[in-house]
Every structure is written in C-alpha cells, then in structure tokens.
Simulated assay, not measured.
Amino acid sequence: MTSVERYKQELKQSDVDHHTPTAGAMTGHIIANLLIHSLKIGQAKLFAQGPAAFFLAQYGSQWVGHEQTVFADLNRLLVNNGESIPTTTDQFKQFTMLEEDGASKYDPGDDQLFGLVKDFDTQTLFITKAIALAQQASWPELAMTLGELLAWIKEQIALAQRFLGHDLRTGLYTEEDDDDF
C-alpha cells in the first residue's frame, strides 16, 4: 500500500472514530486544543497589558511548556496504541474546539487572560469525555494521563480566576449552557 493510500485509509477511519466517538478520537480533539491553546497563550504573553501581563509573564511559559509536554505524551500514547493523531494544519483546525480571533490581541489584558481561562474550561469538557471513553475501553494509561491533565487544568483555572478576582466558575461553562454536549 502506498503512503497516499495509507493516509486515505487513516482519514476514513478517523472519520468513523469521530462519529462513534472513541477514546482515541476524543483525545485527538484534546491534542488539537492543546496546540491551539499554546499558540494563544504565546500571543497573549506578547500583547497583554496591565496586571495580566505580569501574570502571563510568570505563568505563561509554564502553561505552554506543560501543554507541549502533554501534547507530545498524548501523541506518543495514541501512536503506540495504533490510533490516528492530527498531523496537518487542516486537521488541527478541524479538531480544535477553541475559537481564534486575531483582534483579541488588542483586548484588555484581563480579557485576554480570561479568554485563556475559558479555553482551559472548554478543554475540560473534552478531557472528561475522553476519560470516560478510555475507562470504557479499558485503556488505563490514557485515562490516567488525561486525569492528570484535567487536575492540572483545574488548578490553572482556579489560579487565574483568583487573580482576576472572580469566583471559581464565574463566566465558565455550566450544564445549563449546553444540553447537547
């Protein structure tokens, strides 16, 4: 089988997996979200002003570093188990559920930081679902890796929300927001 044929087969299987969904497919969304979020953190570090700039100077690089480490770990874990991962820009754009807006770099620093917090919160929805799917599939190492990511993200949300002077769940997703998820 040629490389082109193999890739077409991978895309076909990926489409099936995303409509089922599977633990691997849901983790593909998480991988895409991590990459896009890392880029957004980098942008906010460059453009945020005010007190949020100091917060991002202190924590932004740690966030990017941690997300990139988990990104690599999840990619390796999926590939080692015969799963597909997003590998092209088009796939990352298709699989991410984080919104991008180039104009947001000119928003007030606190708004940029809160946007990153909301992105963390969005990621928790996918991570929680992927953990449940990994447990159903008897895939303990994926469930464990995702559980650690979930705990870390919740810690970052709490840290940033306190900095912004918000209650923990202020402005974040609630079950009433979307009954379709």
Rank of each mutant, 00 (worst) to 15 (best):
Q49F: 11
S14K: 01
Y59F: 12
K93W: 00
K129A: 06
N81L: 03
L113R: 12
Q62M: 13
L168V: 14
P108R: 13
K8D: 08
V79A: 10
D101Y: 02
I153K: 01
D180I: 05
L168C: 09
T124Y: 14
A143E: 13
L172A: 04
Q94F: 06
Q13E: 11
Q135T: 10
D180C: 07
K40W: 01
R162E: 09
V117E: 02
G82D: 05
L56E: 06
N33D: 15
I31K: 08
H29V: 07
L39P: 03
I31Q: 06
L149C: 03
A72Y: 11
K45S: 04
Y106G: 15
T89N: 06
R6C: 08
D180K: 10
Q136W: 01
P86R: 04
T88E: 03
L172Y: 04
L34Y: 14
K118Y: 06
G102A: 04
M97K: 12
M97N: 09
F126K: 10
S61V: 11
I153P: 00
V117T: 10
A32C: 10
L149M: 08
E176I: 07
Q49V: 12
T89I: 08
L34P: 10
F181K: 10
S104M: 15
Q156V: 04
V79M: 13
P51W: 00
W139F: 14
N80F: 02
A72V: 05
E100A: 04
T69A: 06
A44T: 12
E155T: 07
D180W: 11
N75V: 09
L39I: 12
A72R: 11
Y173L: 08
F71L: 03
K129E: 05
L146K: 04
V70S: 03
Q91H: 05
R169Y: 04
A48K: 02
Q156Y: 06
F71R: 02
D15Q: 01
S84I: 02
A143R: 14
D177R: 13
L125V: 09
D119Q: 11
E176Q: 12
G115S: 09
R76T: 01
T88Q: 02
G165A: 00
F181R: 13
R6D: 10
E67S: 08
K118R: 15
